[in-house]
């Protein structure tokens, strides 16, 4: 099954909407609609599948089916490397893979050099894979794995040795291991910065106040806090729009989408859908989504909820 391998290579694929794709042609549930709306040519699969709304397996299945039907396609940008580079941005290193050639002149045995390359490859994948534990690993297993890898990759192990480009990479790996361990061993909490921001907003109305103390003027505000709120709002509106479309209430859908378009970056999907509902809302007679049987894109593994139903292609 596909979801088995969706760890690394598959997870790194980046999808975009197929040219000429007409969102009016399918009738997604609101969660599927939301997933579709997040396909923007930038977000990799592994992020998309965790977007929420449905389970990871369901998301995988959904994405696979759209891919198979030609609604979406894989854009072949060098995205794996980009993701990695983003996570390394603070090191200032650009091309990881180029500088990391096996180099016998370094004070680091070849086997370890290969291990470094191997672990670097796992950094972007699932945490459990990086730590080499199963998904069901308990706290003890996790700690054992974390300690074992720490002994291998903690920078103190290589104090003052001539490691060339490997020095930076070893530190990056250690940080990655630590983060993976943190993620797996604790229930994911909202970052405290975001938490603080939300609290603060309640107290002070940080967003609305135009000028605070003159001394504060140039200190930054919390972007991620604002953004997560904005995303939340966008999500609600998109769901409402999806609901409206499925009930042929195009004017209402249009209103929702126009609000979203006001404050969210425009994705091709949003643009096309908006164009679609605009055309439908001015000409309500045409606004009929055909429900006849079309090509079945995937079959539902569960009949759990409204997330599961068949897609039809019109025309």
């Amino acid at each position: 099954m596909q979801e088995q391998e969706s760890g690394t290579a598959v997870g790194r694929r980046v999808l975009r909407l197929a040219p000429g794709f007409d969102p009016g042609g399918i009738k997604p549930s609101s969660v599927e609609f939301f997933l579709l709306s997040r396909i923007d040519g930038r977000t990799p699969w592994r992020v998309l599948r965790e977007m929420g709304g449905m389970s990871v397996e369901e998301s995988d299945l959904c994405l696979e089916s759209w891919l198979a039907a030609g609604f979406v396609e894989v854009c072949h940008s060098d995205c794996g490397d980009q993701g990695l580079r983003r996570s390394l941005s603070c090191e200032g290193s650009t091309k990881v893979s180029d500088s990391l050639r096996v180099d016998p002149s370094l004070d680091l045995d070849l086997q370890t050099q290969r291990r470094v390359t191997e672990l670097l490859g796992l950094l972007e994948g699932p945490d459990a894979l990086l730590l080499g534990v199963s998904d069901e690993a308990n706290e003890k297993d996790l700690k054992r794995a974390y300690f074992k890898l720490s002994r291998e990759f903690h920078p103190d192990r290589y104090f003052r040795r001539n490691l060339g480009p490997y020095r930076n990479q070893i530190e990056i790996i250690f940080k990655g291991i630590q983060k993976a361990y943190e993620n797996l061993s604790r229930p994911p909490l909202a970052s405290s910065v975001v938490r603080d921001a939300v609290l603060r907003k309640k107290e002070n109305g940080i967003l609305s106040s135009d000028s605070g103390h003159s001394q504060d003027e140039s200190t930054p505000g919390d972007f991620q806090g604002l953004r997560s709120e904005r995303e939340q709002r966008a999500r609600e509106l998109m769901r409402a729009a999806a609901q409206a479309i499925s009930q042929n209430h195009f004017s209402e859908a249009r209103r929702c989408l126009e609000i979203v378009a006001d404050f969210e970056p425009e994705t091709p999907f949003l643009r096309q859908t908006l164009a679609h509902v605009r055309s439908r809302s001015v000409d309500p007679v045409e606004a009929v989504v055909k429900e006849e049987v079309g090509q079945s894109l995937f079959s539902s593994p569960s009949r759990k909820s409204e997330t599961r139903h068949r897609y039809v292609r019109t025309g």
Binding site: S89, C90, E91, P155, E171, F174, K175, Q178, S191, S192, V193, D196, A197, R200, N204, I206, D210, S211, G212, H213, Q215, D216, E217, T219, P220, G221, D222, F223, Q224, L226, R227
Partner: peptide, 30 residues
């Protein structure tokens, strides 16, 4: 770092294992 209104936004919480890198996105307030 200090954020708008004189608040303290923690990027690295106490008792975090070192070495460590943490990033967060901020924005302007005017």
């Amino acid at each position: 770092i200090s954020t708008f209104g004189g608040h303290f936004a923690r990027l690295i919480e106490r008792n975090t294992t070192v070495p460590v890198t943490k990033a967060h996105i901020f924005t302007t307030t005017r």
